[in-house]
Design a protein around this nucleic acid. Structure first.
Length: 221
DNA sequence: AAAACGGGGGC
DNA sequence: GCCCCAGTTTT
């Protein structure tokens, strides 16, 4: 992307890493510390729907006390799942979805999470964001996980110029150094949650204003 | 009372 | 591409 040399993106990443160290709430860093399995990542993704990350993490941990594998989860009653994840909201829908997913994995994938994008995307409730997160963090396969934070901030910073998450993913894949594909998600998500908010970016005091072409612009797609 | 929390699916 | 979906927590 125009203006983004390798040196510049490395500088950005380095500063976002420093920024993250000062954040109370981080996302994937926390997940990584807990060494979650691909299945657990998948479950967390589904719980995270319309739910704050702190709440998602707490709900996930409670559910994992009951079941850590598709086999175990498939045996739980939906009401037990719902109870475990309750504060995350939409608990009945999510419970049904989680159980359906666990059962399907047992029935059609020998109780394992598939390690390729095509099969992941066929699972109910799994789209590009979830599939790429599981591929990246769960299996170590270079994949760019684009959620709303990554989409918004990639556009603000001019890393891409796109109107959809899918387009953002494609544009990033075109030039972003491959070793950054996995870590870029957590860096931008943490930055997005703690500073570069959707409607109020708080540019004053931002650690990367000098790299940002849209300082002070508060309206974004 | 209102806002924030976001991705997948169906068409 | 556009619309729909579903509840809790925070302000």
């Amino acid at each position: 992307m125009r203006g983004w040399t390798e040196e510049r993106i490395r500088d950005l990443v380095s500063r976002l890493e420093t920024f993250r160290e000062g954040c109370r709430v981080t996302t994937l860093a926390e997940v990584e510390r807990e060494s979650r399995s691909p299945f657990q990542l998948l479950v967390s993704c589904i719980i995270s729907l319309r739910t704050k990350d702190e709440v998602t993490n707490a709900a996930s941990r409670r559910l994992f006390q009951l079941a850590q594998t598709p086999q175990a989860l498939a045996k739980l009653k939906p009401v037990e799942i719902a109870k475990a994840i309750y504060p995350a909201g939409f608990y009945r829908t999510k419970a049904a979805q989680l159980q359906q997913l666990a059962s399907l994995l047992c029935a059609e994938h020998n109780g394992a999470v598939p390690a390729n994008e095509r099969d992941l995307l066929r699972l109910p409730g799994v789209g590009r964001k979830t599939a790429n997160l599981v591929l990246g963090l769960g299996f170590g396969v270079p994949a760019i996980c684009v959620d709303t934070h990554v989409h918004r901030i990639s556009n603000r910073l001019g890393l891409v110029s796109s109107t959809s998450p899918k387009e953002t993913e494609q544009q990033l894949a075109r030039w972003l150094p491959r070793d950054l594909w996995i870590p870029i998600n957590d860096l931008l998500v943490t930055f997005g949650q703690n500073r570069c908010h959707p409607t109020s970016p708080r540019c004053s005091g931002c650690p990367v204003t000098d790299l940002c072409p849209r300082v002070g612009v508060t309206r974004h797609r």
